[in-house]
Design a protein around this nucleic acid. Structure first.
Ligand SMILES: [Zn+2]
Ligand SMILES: [Zn+2]
Ligand SMILES: [Zn+2]
Ligand SMILES: [Zn+2]
Lengths: 135, 135
DNA sequence: ATAAACCCTGGAGTACAGTCTAAGGTCAAT
DNA sequence: ATTGACCTTAGACTGTACTCCAGGGTTTAT
């Protein structure tokens, strides 16, 4: 059984983060010692590990919440269900990707149209372009 | 001179947004009528137009604040300054792009390793992979 | 015995970009 | 005269993911 600081060190997160995750239902350490300190089991360690892994691949805490439910009830779920969840996330990520690519392209168009010279910017095509109506 | 609702309709934003931008120093309508209503000039319309254009290409309100200062003092600035600002933003965007691409790749790796079948997910490689230590 | 290091709680604060509400004042039309 | 559409303010709320603080209690080492 680990105390919060020990688990925090193990998982490279702050104690506050662990308490935050608990408050939001991501972990549920059942036991407390006589002083009221949280005690974390092997299962809790595994759960944190899962959470960190999911964060690493870009899931939000909300999504991780749903993933944890899949994980806990995995004998009632199928690979199909899990894969579908991941694929749904991929399509969200693809949307963000497309938006950022669009932005990058716009910025590059702006940048390359500007002479970049040392004369006053009163003629700057960037400033002009920005104030042009897009609708 | 336009009232706030008229400018809002023109710019396709809410009145609240215009007041929000004002509170954060992005616009500064000088005049008010006898009833205390904001009155917007041509210059203000141009400014909003600039802000919307900058938002469109992904600048944050904070960055737009800086851009507006460049715009207002453009006779003292050079194209070099403006271009540099845009290029700095491009490199921020590139970082976000790289991160999202990394996430997409990870998710695709996860997805393609899963059989996606209808059997119980107790053997699912996705769930396994997520709880693996990355550090 | 006492200091340092740890634990607890509730609540506030951060950045971002608004949105919404309450409680009022004004203006145009019916 | 009264309805409805518009305007004003200050301040609270949204979601995301924490981080920090105050004001306590506990454990460990010297
Ligand atoms: Zn130039
Ligand atoms: Zn230029
Ligand atoms: Zn499978
Ligand atoms: Zn699977």
């Amino acid at each position: 059984m680990l105390k919060i600081g020990e688990l925090a060190a193990l998982a490279s997160v702050s104690r506050d983060t662990l308490r935050f995750y608990e408050k939001h239902g991501l972990i549920t350490p059942g036991e407390r010692n006589d002083a009221g300190y949280r005690l974390y089991s092997e299962t809790d360690v595994h759960r944190i590990s899962f959470i960190m892994g999911a964060k690493e691949v870009g899931f939000t805490l909300n999504e991780i919440h749903q993933l944890l439910e899949l994980e806990v009830t995995k004998d009632e779920k199928s690979c199909h269900d899990i894969k579908q969840f991941v694929d749904a996330k991929i399509s969200i990520v693809n949307q963000r990707l497309a938006e950022i690519k669009r932005i990058k392209k716009s910025l590059q168009t702006l940048s390359s149209a500007c002479c970049g010279g040392d004369e006053p910017a009163t003629h700057c095509t960037i400033l002009e372009a920005l104030s042009e109506q897009t609708n």
